[in-house]
Design a protein around this nucleic acid. Structure first.
Length: 200
DNA sequence: ACAGCGATTGACT
DNA sequence: GTCAATCGCTGTA
């Protein structure tokens, strides 16, 4: 890490407190930072999905507030981690104004610093298998339920910042992956031609 | 109290 | 391409 890398412009709460689908798209290209006692991992967000409320049958928030999904109904800019298939954690960030449910699922990242630590955390079969999926990237970045409920605009252990240099990229829009109801909605976005996307 | 299942992954044909 | 693993959450009772 160069000293310059420590000066990062963290996304403010106002970034997240907007329409979930818009926020999802805007998160592409931003830098997810994981800071642990073992070291830091920096990863570019390359694939996301938007999940909303009662207009979205695929969303955890579709049937109203429950103990698991209550963060989706709270303030924007909080970490929502859920456990799935008895094995994996999925990382989301909450969106919309307080009281309106919404979250963005991070489905793929490109690790740009701390690659060695990320490999140690997950031990992938290959470099491309390190973080090209929602369950994979949480393993690589050591994200579990312990991070559930963190304020992603304030915590030092997990936050998202603007990239130092904005690179141009094309955004591909598709249907969301792995759901039944609501699969017709075009709410998945990824960086065109990036290798660290779960499904092209 | 409990049956059913999931915003996934890895192993295998 | 198919399919099992695995367990916390949710809906129903």
């Amino acid at each position: 890490m160069q000293p310059d890398d420590l000066i990062m412009r963290v996304l403010p709460r106002s970034f997240y407190a907007r329409d979930t689908v818009f926020v999802a798209k805007e998160l592409l290209g931003k830098i997810l930072v994981r800071r642990t006692s073992e070291g830091d991992i920096l990863a570019k967000i390359v694939e996301v999905e938007a999940y909303r409320g009662n207009d979205d049958p695929a969303s955890h928030a579709y049937r109203g507030k429950t103990p698991r999904n209550e963060l989706m109904f709270g303030k924007a800019g909080f970490v929502y981690v859920y456990f799935i298939y008895g094995n994996y954690y999925c990382l989301n960030v909450t969106t919309e104004r307080e009281g309106i449910p919404g979250a963005v699922l991070i489905r793929g990242v490109e690790v740009i610093d701390g690659v060695e630590l990320a490999h140690k955390n997950r031990r992938p079969s290959s470099r491309v298998n390190l973080s090209n999926g929602p369950g994979k990237l949480t393993q690589a970045l050591d994200i579990t339920k312990k991070q559930n409920g963190l304020d992603i605009t304030k915590t030092k252990e997990l936050f998202i910042s603007y990239p130092k240099i904005n690179e141009n990229f094309d955004t591909i829009t598709t249907r969301r992956v792995g759901i039944k109801l609501g699969s017709e909605k075009p709410w998945r976005f990824y960086v065109k031609n990036n290798k660290h996307v779960s499904k092209p």
